[in-house]
Design a protein around this nucleic acid. Structure first.
Lengths: 239, 239
DNA sequence: CGCATGTTTGATAAACCTCAAGACCGGTGG
DNA sequence: CCACCGGTCTTGAGGTTTATCAAACATGCG
């Protein structure tokens, strides 16, 4: 099953037909290679994108080469809300790995959503979850230590993976270099490496180039101050 | 004119009647004192709030007394999107100063919005702006130095103030103690004080208990890497 | 005036950064 | 199959920024 559908389905009980109709709206598919630009800073966005394969990231560059990664976009994630009102982007989006993306017309998508209150509800849900991810990122880089940040980040990736893939694993793929973690978590590359070493030494994780295996989820959640409610599944009444 | 209306009006050309009808939906008004809880962590939210007077803040507490303020809610801001789907809150909201809030039924508000595509558009605009504020907060605390963070934060407050009050001033009211800036910007109280002193010494700002006066906006924007497009007014075609 | 709350200052410590060198790893061509 | 190469990761040494603790200082309010 498609990641996007599984994600929507995780939150609200929308019949698969209804979502399928949404996804079958006119769209194109594009393939990107690592570091390709997807949306440029200040570009006016009127398309809505759904990640089908690979990772993207939102980033902002500062002077002297500093950059902050705002968040990662994983398979099943959609962007950008801005497309619904045609706003200019205040950041850029690039491919963090090779990726495939489905591109929809923002206005068309909006019309479809307004025609169905069930779809609207589903769409709001995903938007609420997305804001939750941004808030979590703020807490992470604002008040957590390096080790805590990394642990928290891994747990969040794992949670998102669980939702969009429908199965729980302890292995979290991390198809990006540590330099990207650094820019996402507001740390230096060197300190990322050292902190990972500490987490390994504590027996919390095992790590390889491919990704990270969670060895002691319990202690890790405690260290990371990870709220189990965050990103939780919530099926609600639909009106 | 009401802050909320002025804000909506800043983005989209909705006739005042239409918004007034929205605001005249059944609602209650509540008064809060500093530190009163408005929304508790894990509370199920089904109300939508509009700040009429005073400041609120979203916060999250960690163990050993650490806390992160996610963002401030100023007059004219509305919250929470969560109310539209009845989700549990992943943070708490408290009054940062004495405040007055209008409380609407989330579902009722949603119905009104779905009935008018102009209102829907306006609502999306404000949501997009709110996400922009969260992203900006991530960049701020992720990659800016203490002085840069403070300068950037002040400029953002000033921008928001300009939009919701309709007039530009160089004086930015700051009705909260420095301890709150510290928790918002991920710094210690002491370091906030020292950094403010530095900014004063550089001639960028003047500060008192009441707030901060921007003395050299040009240099301040450069220091803070403040993007003029951020929070920019955008009038768009409505369909 | 006196007290509570908030701010500033000083001294010291901890967390994190930078620079630089060496080790590892996956792919490529001989 | 092996040697090499570029990119990535790790480790060490030393520097900078920010945190912590503690005390003095200001401000506003009863």
């Amino acid at each position: 099953m498609d990641h996007f559908i599984r994600r929507i389905d995780h939150y609200v009980d929308v019949s698969s037909d209804e979502i399928n109709a949404l996804l079958r709206l006119h769209h194109t598919r594009r393939r990107f290679s690592t570091d390709d630009k997807v949306v440029n800073l200040h570009e006016k966005v009127d398309k809505l994108f759904i990640v089908e394969k690979g990772w993207l990231l939102r980033e902002r560059h500062l002077e002297n080469g500093r950059r902050q990664i705002i968040n990662f976009l994983l398979p099943g994630d959609y962007f950008d809300l801005m497309s619904l009102v045609g706003a200019q982007s205040d950041h850029s989006i690039i491919a963090a790995t090779d990726a495939i993306i489905r591109i929809y017309d923002g206005q068309g998508f909006l019309n479809a959503i307004q025609a169905s209150s069930k779809l609207a509800s589903a769409f709001w849900w995903v938007t609420v979850q997305e804001e939750s991810i941004l808030r979590q990122q703020i807490v992470r880089i604002g008040r957590l230590s390096a080790q805590e940040r990394i642990a928290n980040f891994i747990l969040e990736l794992n949670r998102r993976q669980t939702i969009s893939e429908g199965a729980t694993t302890d292995f979290v793929p991390l198809p990006v270099p540590q330099a990207m973690l650094a820019d996402a978590l507001g740390l230096s590359i060197v300190h990322i490496s050292r902190s990972l070493t500490s987490l390994r030494a504590k027996g919390l994780i095992k790590s390889s180039r491919k990704g990270i295996t969670i060895l002691d989820r319990e202690r890790m959640m405690e260290l990371a101050d990870f709220d189990p409610i965050h990103l939780k599944s919530k099926r609600v009444e639909l009106t």
